Computed example of a mutant assay.
Amino acid sequence: MMMPDPIVLAVAVPAVLFAGISKGGFGSGAAFAATPILSLVVEPLVALGIMLPLLMLVDVVTVNSFWKRWHLPSVKVLILGGLPGVAIGAYLSQVADADVFRILIGALSLAFVAYQLARARGWLNIPDMAFSPRWGLFTGMTAGFTSYVSHAGGPPVAMFLIGQGMTKTMYQATTAITFWGINIMKFVPYAILGVFTAETLLIDVWMAPVAVAGAYLGIYAHKLVPERIFFAITYVLLITTGSKLIWDALT
């Protein structure tokens, strides 16, 4: 089997490992950061093509590990909303500037963390939000769109789920199966647009063991980390993700 460019592999290994750990144990969080990291050494479209099959592989491992521990009503509306979101992403990515949406999602992510911090400190006395099918459908559509254009659907889903006061495991399981569904939706339009090539497939073959290892490391970390620390890490990942989305859009 041919070996990809060693420089590409050197960058891909930590990026894919980080994505696997993030998706495997801490929601989708900052897993999208693997794509811009890879974009340092390959074209952005190539980076998207490399990451999607690897993210789908991580999804399979993670969903199996958290099987049926999700919040089913949230899963249904998020995946249902994700379908038009992916379709909108496939269309608008060809005709509109996705940076506007990156800034919006990034700003909302930072605002949500500030809101949760204010509640935790007692500055705001607001109870957890009740499950809302309409809000869930809108969140799923937003996640489907941002996931399509940059694999960055994690922040809106995190805001929707954490806002309901879920436990860390229910949050993780719900996130895992939601993006399992959304990533499957993305595969067909990606294939039609020619995102997958012999180059991306070769790199995926080399990176598959790294992705699986990252997923299992994330699952192991999820079991060890106390709930309070888990959500603290999740908020840090949201801040990182939101800031990176804004930075990518502005630069």
Rank of each mutant, 00 (worst) to 15 (best):
V42F: 01
I105S: 02
L54T: 09
L40W: 01
A114N: 01
V41R: 08
V11A: 15
M56V: 04
I177S: 03
F26L: 14
D97G: 04
V210D: 12
P36T: 08
A152Q: 00
L201A: 15
F32S: 12
G140A: 12
P156N: 08
F196W: 01
H222S: 07
R134A: 14
I162N: 04
R102V: 04
V225G: 00
W67D: 07
G24L: 08
V41G: 07
V58T: 02
W247N: 12
A208K: 06
V11Y: 09
A107P: 01
F138Q: 06
L52W: 03
K76T: 15
L55W: 13
L110Y: 00
M51I: 14
M166E: 05
V113Q: 02
G106L: 05
F230N: 02
G25W: 04
L217V: 05
P189K: 10
S93A: 13
S243M: 12
M56D: 03
T240V: 12
R134P: 05
L124F: 03
F230D: 01
G106R: 06
Q164P: 13
L40R: 06
K23C: 15
Y216K: 13
Y115W: 12
S93R: 04
G144C: 13
Y216W: 15
R228L: 07
I184D: 00
L161A: 05
A30L: 14
V63M: 07
M2Y: 04
T241G: 15
D59P: 10
V61Y: 07
L108T: 06
Q164G: 13
P53V: 02
R119A: 00
W123L: 14
L245D: 09
A111G: 09
L83I: 15
A130S: 06
F112C: 10
S243D: 11
W247V: 15
V42Q: 02
D59L: 08
R102E: 13
G140M: 12
Y148E: 10
Y148L: 09
V60K: 03
V205G: 13
T240R: 09
H222L: 11
F160G: 11
M1N: 12
M129Q: 15
T169D: 12
A215D: 06
L45C: 05
L40I: 07
D128S: 07
G122F: 03
N125P: 09
I88Y: 02
A33S: 14
A249K: 12
P44H: 00
V157C: 03
P14A: 12
V8P: 06
I21E: 11
F196Q: 01
Y91S: 14
L40M: 10
G153M: 04
G194L: 07
P73L: 12
H151E: 05
L92R: 05
H71W: 08
M185C: 01
L245K: 05
